[in-house]
Design a protein around this nucleic acid. Sequence first.
DNA 1: GATGAATGAGCATTCATTCAT
DNA 2: CATGAATGAATGCTCATTCAT
Lengths: 202, 202, 202, 202
Amino acid sequence: MNENKINQRRSDIIEAAIQVFSEKGYHATKISDIAELLKIGHGTFYRYFKSKFDIFNAIADDLILHVGQMVTTEAPTESNSLEDYRAQLNRIGKSLFDIFMTDIRIFRIAFYELLGVDATLNEKLENAIKLFDLYTEQYLINGVNKCFLRPDLDTEVIAKAVNGMIFVSCKAVLDAEDKDAAYQRWMNSVSLLMLDGMALRA
Amino acid sequence: MNENKINQRRSDIIEAAIQVFSEKGYHATKISDIAELLKIGHGTFYRYFKSKFDIFNAIADDLILHVGQMVTTEAPTESNSLEDYRAQLNRIGKSLFDIFMTDIRIFRIAFYELLGVDATLNEKLENAIKLFDLYTEQYLINGVNKCFLRPDLDTEVIAKAVNGMIFVSCKAVLDAEDKDAAYQRWMNSVSLLMLDGMALRA
Amino acid sequence: MNENKINQRRSDIIEAAIQVFSEKGYHATKISDIAELLKIGHGTFYRYFKSKFDIFNAIADDLILHVGQMVTTEAPTESNSLEDYRAQLNRIGKSLFDIFMTDIRIFRIAFYELLGVDATLNEKLENAIKLFDLYTEQYLINGVNKCFLRPDLDTEVIAKAVNGMIFVSCKAVLDAEDKDAAYQRWMNSVSLLMLDGMALRA
Amino acid sequence: MNENKINQRRSDIIEAAIQVFSEKGYHATKISDIAELLKIGHGTFYRYFKSKFDIFNAIADDLILHVGQMVTTEAPTESNSLEDYRAQLNRIGKSLFDIFMTDIRIFRIAFYELLGVDATLNEKLENAIKLFDLYTEQYLINGVNKCFLRPDLDTEVIAKAVNGMIFVSCKAVLDAEDKDAAYQRWMNSVSLLMLDGMALRA
DNA sequence: GATGAATGAGCATTCATTCAT
DNA sequence: CATGAATGAATGCTCATTCAT
């Protein structure tokens, strides 16, 4: 069997596994569920993955890889003005939404399942989040350096808070019926919160 | 055995269950783990709770109840100026931290375990969050009405975004060594983000 | 449940396990076979033994213990003449036959199953045999010292050869219909071989 | 593919199987282990042997055949004196050692694996041993008839006892570092035991 | 009420064997 | 003929739950 077919089958199994994991959760998912979905023998699963945990790990790694790639695409020091920054924020938000919107099920796994399955996975997710936090902080530091963000920002803490908002946004947009409209609403509000605050200014 | 003793034992079991669930997670927790911790027979467990799921549900209900109570303590319409509002924000934040700081294990369960165990529980948590979002929105609406918050706020979306930040904050503070210091840093940054934004103003 | 009942049940399971192992062999024995024989749930088995290997090990240890006890009962330096020695040989042979005759199935396990299941078990059996060889050698050395056995005996090798004969004898006697008669025949021949040899002397 | 090639491949597979069976034991040996050793597809195995059991049987048959051939090479009635007999004993012992020394792995299979795999195989081995016992008995009877062995020998029993010693010897020699030296020691002791006995004679 | 012995449904995983290519 | 992907029967083991004592 050629390389392509093997990879195809592997992908099919991952695809089916994502489906079942996102529907039933890790623990309630039986290998036979995944196999049945593909109409293959459940022994076949084990030709492609070592164990149930193995495939879950593979899915998690994929997810984390995607997020990592996304985050590194934009250079943190690129923007030189508040306007640049707003635009950049928009691009980042868009990419993140795109990643998850491609497959809502992945997001569901990331948030409903990744934690609590296994200490290793917890750590993996924590590290991914930490990485994401660091990148966000770079943007903030850049803004402070370029003098378009407040000089007294607690960048470490604010980076995490901002990312918290972003994750909530992702979830909300993905749960919305009209995702484009939701995306606009959230983007506007998040960017308002981040840059301008809610207080009415004279 | 009188009513009191029964309730005492029930509480003991819940206490032990919280301990074990937060350490091992729902699926890895065995009823016998809980029983052993209390030095009772594991058959006894079933005289107080119908099933493993039953007690987990009870814990979740408790948690959600606490959050609900906290939220309703403050009247959303109380503050009349930005200063009042800042103060109120601080009180709300404090209460929330207090709930979770009383028992970090509860928080761990809420975030690491509640999701993914069962669809019913997911829904319950979603509802609690929705409730919390609604309350937060009331504060925003009050601020808009009283003219100390921007009139064009998308209160529904912003409420959710703000709550997202708050949850991230709770996690961060609880994970910190010096929780009081962390609380101050986070409270300052979150309230800055909420009210003033990061942009440097001329 | 009191200690006695627990031990009783444990013994019952061992008894049933010996039965099934000796009939079907280790690998072909299913835990459920053992459980069915006792009309107990197969989960019950695991209350008394950690695993299939665990109980097999327990049986092996028992067997080895018995042999060890038997061997140490007779003092190797007791006999002072060829006549004493013949008598002692008879006693030793008798004990060994007794051990195995109590339960032919144990013997079958020792010879048909103990080897090849697991390296640890192989080693255990080898050690038991080595021990037995050493004891036998003590008897030979005593005989040489007391001058009723040839001074040029290669005691190490001969001890092993003698024990080889003894094991073959055990097997033969146990397989015989009339075990008492068979015992007599074998005992006579083995002791003749050991002490006098087959050659006709002038 | 011509007959020769087919037989060659069959032999190769048997050779590899002996290797793996003797290393891992029957049950722990996977068909794919054998195939991998030969760098052939494991499906190919089934073109030459019906099943895992089939090849094991073939190996066992081979082994038994070899022993049979060896035993029949020497005519039991050849020796006419004790001296002849001693010499013949040496030749027989030598051939037996040779068979097994050619391939220690075969011996390991014979002793560690043949028993306990399957009732049919057990019976086969028993028959081979029985055959060997019968031949040995012929030598004894010849010795009695030719009056160089005691007239009162229980030839049936003694044949078996002697063979027991011989098997133990084989094992010991094969396990020894210096096999030639070991062979000498064992041969001397066994032949002493057989013909002369251990007792010191005046 | 308390206990913990008994239970068996349930599931991950292995591997001999088949058969389409 | 050779291959190795696919298969699924088979089994050890866990643990929530029951119930006799």
